[in-house]
Simulated scan of single mutants.
Amino acid sequence: MTVGAMAEAGVRLLAGTDSVGPGLFPGFSLHFELQQLVASGLTPLRALQCATLEPARFLGREDWAGTVEECRVADLVILDADPLADIRNTQRIHAVVVDGYYLGPDERKRLLATVQEIAGGDR
């Protein structure tokens, strides 16, 4: 469990599988990566921080991004289940808030159906 040992040793880790490549679909592949981070020994909280707080720190933006607090910039994923109880719950997305715009369940379904149609897949 090299990743877990690295985290324990204080190595700063970032989530980042959202590059385009075979089998990688931006946004979707992050869920699998979070599962792999937990399987490698990180807690669910620490894995989530690798995709939120740590990138903000890496980019020097931790004063205004990376956490959900008043006067900070944040897009939000509203889940139907606690990801700290089971990291796979990050896939149980109820709604999303992007740039202050709320995408509820129905609108998300329509957008995902459109993406699927464009991609030609039957997911």
Rank of each mutant, 00 (worst) to 15 (best):
Q35P: 00
Q35R: 04
R88V: 07
G60D: 12
F32P: 04
L24Q: 03
Q36K: 02
L76E: 01
R88C: 03
I78E: 04
V11T: 08
R72D: 00
D75L: 11
F58D: 08
V73M: 13
L59K: 09
G100T: 08
D82I: 10
L13E: 00
A74D: 10
D18H: 05
L45K: 12
D18S: 04
R57W: 11
G66A: 12
L42W: 02
F32Y: 01
T90P: 11
V38W: 02
T43A: 11
I78F: 05
F32T: 05
T90E: 06
G60P: 11
G23S: 11
T17Y: 05
E70Q: 13
P22T: 13
R72K: 15
G27I: 11
I78C: 05
E69M: 12
D80M: 03
Q91G: 14
N89Y: 06
P55R: 03
P105W: 08
L53Q: 03
F32S: 00
L84W: 10
C71P: 00
L14K: 12
V77D: 00
D63S: 14
E8S: 13
S29Y: 02
S19M: 14
H94I: 04
Q49A: 10
G60E: 10
S19V: 14
L48P: 07
V11F: 09
L79D: 02
G104R: 06
A95C: 04
D75R: 13
D80G: 12
H31Q: 08
I87Y: 01
I93C: 06
G10I: 09
D75H: 12
P55L: 07
V98E: 10
I78K: 00
R92C: 03
V77L: 08
G66F: 12
C50N: 01
P26G: 14
A74I: 09
D63I: 00
R72F: 15
L45M: 10
D82G: 09
I87G: 05
T67W: 10
D18E: 07
L34W: 02
D86S: 13
